[in-house]
Design a protein around this nucleic acid. Structure first.
Lengths: 336, 336
DNA sequence: CTGTTAGCGCATTCAG
DNA sequence: CTGAATGCGCTAACAG
């Protein structure tokens, strides 16, 4: 592998000039610059990342961490996010590390990549409420940004979508259709997102003067399977709901399967709604009425925030993105 | 950030001893070792990755590259693979970089991470046939491994599933059911995988003494949309197929949607099959009969191969994994 | 505008 | 078993 020295020799300059050319330092004559550029191309020289990192104390890497394996599998949302972020980081010269955080893993592991200088900053996806890791990161002043989570106790930047708003969007749509007995299926209740939606569900019920019936609530975990189980559970209640709010599309898809097995028609017998508007949402039968979270916008903001945080720009920023109701065909007026 | 020097001072040894302890060099007394370990913990010292990389000339990073954005989105398979690989690399001290290769991007970008020393090796997912990048990587002797692709011209290690076998599994199952007019929907025909399945489809037809009818073939691109379009196209043929082979589950899901729109019943009017057995495959209505590729096994092999390749162990290895038929309910005997 | 010097944190080599 | 010197490739700070 050629080094700056080799380039320098070929271009007949000192290696310092080579360094300047690479870093776009203006103090180089056009003529020399071009000579150096030519030499660089000729040798197909690439600056050594390790050396740069060593003396600038910056790795130009960002890590993105997902809470646990299962989550990752089932959430196309996460994948899209990865790419959105990556595509925005690359032009800035940053690369993206992928990390998982299996349940048992020590919080040390998280900070390790950091202390080792492998990453300059971390993106945490939907961390669990009260997560020790976050406290540690915050206490150690590590640059990190949370996606789908809010600060509680510790201060940090985050990007979240307005869960309360999205929930209201769905619920009011259901109310307008005439539904009064509406079931609720939560995601992993250990996550902010889930709690926010659940709380808003209860609040909307109360605002509408409707009773809260805990038999109409099922605590799921975002997975296809838990959506499937939730549907079977709710449909067996003595007074079955006329509509069910699923906290993500994934679970709603699981429910569609359960409905078929049970011979329950959607939406004729029960209306269901999802959340996220993943790509599959428009391909289910019936297509899902859901709430769209603009992943592109999330990725955009996340990339911006983590870069700013790394560069120490300004204060903590809290960004709440507006969700949007997407009406398809999984809901109709209740029969009774 | 504490360095070896700081640890050394605290433990009252030279920094060299610290280095030895970290690298598990046996030439350290138990007593000193423990003193050093204590100092390390006390300062919460972590070895600097950049410095290590600089002088060992190894980054201990591996990159995984997906061909284009769209592909990534639609293939849960890719995501699962990422995690499988990551979880196997981590215990070996390696981290995983995520990279995309948008269509327009120069082949230079691919080699760049390498030349910069950001990664020690690359995992290429389903590269297109005749890809320039691969040739470059091979010519430059960079350690890389291909998943879902075979060598053609250049020599390299790869992990693939037996596409021909999988295709036969499906086709023979369909033959046994009594189907004789079987449609074929390919994935992106620029990929090995697609070609392998297509060729085997034709071969099985011939072996069975069945005519090849090009009107029964649709060249898709793996996406939900192309599956949707394929179904509409095939179903409109004068002599419509009694069964359709989709080259992945994704497209089969798109087809289910199209069938619903057209009022065509699956499997009563047309049988369909998928490929991959992604998680959703068992949640569609009807559940998909498909071919399972063991992602865990793929991830396992990929991790093993890339590590071996990086460490220069042995020759190129070609690993072909056996697929398995998964019968669910998207197929039945043809009516006519 | 260009070159020289020094040092980032670590591991390899050689002395003790 | 332990320590001292040397250099990995690069850039910041200074000198010319």
């Amino acid at each position: 592998m050629p080094s700056q020295q080799d380039v320098a020799k070929l271009a007949k300059v000192s290696f310092m000039t080579v360094s300047r050319v690479i870093n776009n330092n203006p103090n180089v004559t056009k003529a020399t610059r071009e000579r150096v550029l030519k030499a660089i191309k000729e040798l197909s020289y690439y600056p050594n990342a390790a050396a740069r990192a060593l003396n600038s104390n910056k790795s130009r890497n960002v890590g993105i961490i997902f809470p646990r394996k299962d989550y990752f599998f089932v959430a196309p949302f996460c994948m899209e996010l990865c790419f959105e972020v990556e595509s925005r980081l690359k032009p800035k010269g940053y690369n993206l590390f992928l990390g998982s955080m299996t349940k048992g893993s020590e919080s040390r592991e998280l900070t390790a990549m950091f202390r080792e200088g492998k990453v300059d900053g971390l993106i945490l996806f939907a961390p669990r409420i009260g997560e020790e890791e976050i406290k540690m990161l915050a206490d150690d002043h590590m640059p990190f940004v949370v996606v789908h989570g809010r600060s509680a106790g510790k201060e940090f930047s985050y990007v979240d979508s307005d869960n309360a708003k999205g929930t209201s969007l769905i619920l009011r749509y259901l109310f307008d259709l005439g539904h009064r007995r509406i079931g609720f299926v939560s995601g992993d209740i250990g996550e902010m997102n889930s709690m926010d939606r659940y709380r808003r569900y209860r609040r909307e019920l109360k605002a509408k003067g409707l009773p809260f019936d805990k038999r109409l609530v099922f605590f799921g975990d975002w997975s296809l399977e838990s959506g499937h189980a939730a549907f079977r559970y709710l449909i067996e209640q003595k007074e079955r709901p006329t509509a069910i709010f699923f906290s993500n599309d994934q679970m709603a898809i699981g429910a569609i399967k359960a409905a078929e097995e049970l011979g329950v028609r959607i939406p004729d017998d029960v209306s269901i709604t999802g959340y996220d508007d993943i790509k599959y949402a428009s391909f289910t039968v019936p297509a899902l009425t859901t709430v769209r979270q603009n992943i592109g916008a999330v990725g955009d903001k996340v990339a911006e925030l983590i870069l700013d945080t790394i560069e120490g720009k300004g204060e903590f920023r809290k960004i709440i993105l507006e969700p949007e109701l997407v009406v398809r065909s999984s809901c109709c007026r209740p029969v009774d």
